[in-house]
Amino acid sequence: MHFDPTIPFKYWDALLIGLGTSLRLTLICLAIGIALGFVTSQARRSRLMPVRAVAIFYVELFRGTPVLIQLFWIFYCLPMLIGAEPGNFISAVLSLSLYAGAITSETFRAALKSIPREQYDTCRALGITGLRLAIWVVLPQALLRAIPTLLSNAVALFKESALISAVGMADLMFIGSSIANRTGRPVEMLTAIAIIYFTVAFPLTRIVGRVETRILRRLAV
C-alpha cells in the first residue's frame, strides 16, 4: 500500500465544514466558559459557605473526571433526567462550556491571587473601595494577568472539542475519520486532520508566549 498525499485534498470542502464546526463550538464554549469561570472564581471567594462549597464541587468534579464521561453523561443521561432532548449541538455546547468554566475559574483564581496586597492598601489609602475597587483596579489587572492562560485554555478547548465526534457531532475529527473509514485510507486522512488541528493550535501557542512576556513587562511595577 502506498502513501497518497493527494487524497485528503479531494475532500477539502467536507474537512473545512468540519473545521468550521470545531471552531464555532470552541468559540461559543470559550465565551460561555469565561463568563462562567469568572462567576465561579468569585463564588469561591464568597463569604457564604454553601456558595463556596458548590463552586468548589463543580470545579473539582469537572477537572477530576475525563471530558469524555462528562460528554456521555450530558448526551445520554441528562435527557433521561430532564425528560427532554436538548439536541446535539446544545448538549455539546453545554458539556464543553461546563468544562471550560471549570478550568477558566482556576485561571481567574490564580490571576486574582497574583495581584499584590499593596494594591489593596493603596486603594484604601485613596478611598477606592468596594465595587469601585473591584471594577477599576482588581478586574482589569486580573483580566490582564489571565489573558495568556485564557489563550492556552482556548487551545485546550479546541483540542478537547475533538471528543464530540464520539457522540456523532460532525466536527473535523468526525468528518475526517468517517472519510478515512469510507475510503479505507486512514493514514492519509488521519494525518491530514492531525495537521489541520496542528495548523490552528500551534500558532496560538506561539502567541501565548509572546503575549505573556508583553503583559508581564507591562505589569512589572
Binding site: 487551545v155 483540542k159 478537547e160 472539542s161 475533538a162 471528543l163 465526534s165 464520539a166 475529527m173 475519520s177 478515512a180 486512514p186 493514514v187 488521519l190 494525518t191 486532520i193 492531525a194 488541528y197 496542528f198 493550535a201 500551534f202 501557542t205
Partner: peptide, 17 residues
Amino acid sequence: LFRCTPVLIQVVWFFYC
C-alpha cells in the same frame, strides 16, 4: 506535535496508522 493536536487523534492515529 503532541501538544498541538487532540489526544484523540493521537490515539486513533497510533491505533490505525
